[in-house]
């Protein structure tokens, strides 16, 4: 099953304004930077983006925020992006902040056919407002619903023509769950290989979850906080 497309233009065909998207990555680590650059060019607007963060002011999803292309963010963390915080406080941007673990599990549930689940995270806080509360083993939990998206856009280290993916180090983060939850899942990879090149034992995301795959032309892989020690 050949899922290879030439470039991000082809990979994002059908992506339109007002759609709901999932974008993998944590901070700037493991983000689909080629696809984001393409979305800036496409000029789509009114997007709802499900992503743990929104990048920094001038990289990652921050680029779409700058261009006012995003209507709503569903995230767990705003820090490190002044424009995100500014648009949120001024009310220009709708923001649904949810605990990181609940965000991950809601994506996983969306891809796994589980409509909702109970979690203790957020009980007694703003996050619980309007949500069903139920006790299990004497402890209160809140009901969280699954998330899905029109497009899930993920970034992997290696992929093959079948859409099988392997991620590198902590660049895995949200990518595998989001890959499961997209109606159309686009994977951009650093290295695209023929089927049979990857060891089936080592696949993180099986190809069934991926509809389109391409090898990114370049990856800047910007580092958000370079911290080092002396030799």
């Amino acid at each position: 099953m050949n899922k290879v497309v030439k470039n991000p233009q082809e990979a994002l065909q059908g992506l339109q304004s007002d759609m709901t998207l999932m974008l993998g990555g944590f901070g700037l680590c493991g983000i689909p930077e080629n696809s984001i650059a393409e979305m800036v060019k496409m000029g789509v607007t009114g997007l709802t983006c499900i992503s743990n963060n929104a990048g920094v002011d001038d990289f990652g999803l921050g680029l779409l925020l700058q261009g006012k292309q995003i209507k709503k963010m569903i995230s767990s963390y705003v820090g490190e992006n002044d424009e995100f915080e500014r648009q949120m406080l001024s009310g220009e941007l709708e923001v649904d902040l949810i605990p990181q673990g609940s965000l991950a599990e809601r994506c996983r549930a969306g891809g796994a056919g589980i409509p909702a689940f109970y979690t203790p995270a957020g009980y007694g806080t703003e996050v619980a407002e309007g949500k069903e509360v139920r006790e299990f083993n004497g402890k209160p939990h809140i009901l969280e619903s699954a998330l899905t998206a029109d497009f899930a856009i993920v970034k992997a280290w290696k992929g093959d023509t079948e859409g099988n993916l392997i991620f590198k180090a902590t660049a895995r983060n949200f990518n595998p769950m989001m890959a499961m939850a997209g109606k159309i899942t686009v994977a951009e990879v650093e290295e695209l290989l023929p089927a049979g090149s990857l060891d089936p034992n080592e696949i993180h995301t099986p190809g069934i979850f991926v509809q389109r795959i391409f090898q990114g032309e370049t990856f800047e892989k910007r580092i958000e906080q370079k911290t080092v020690r002396q030799k």
Partner: peptide
Amino acid sequence: ENGILGMGPFPFEGEEDADLINAGKQT
């Protein structure tokens, strides 16, 4: 919580890897 068990110290200068960070986004 971004996805590592067995986190070590900061890398030496020049050995940092953009794909290997902690929850504070530090290399």
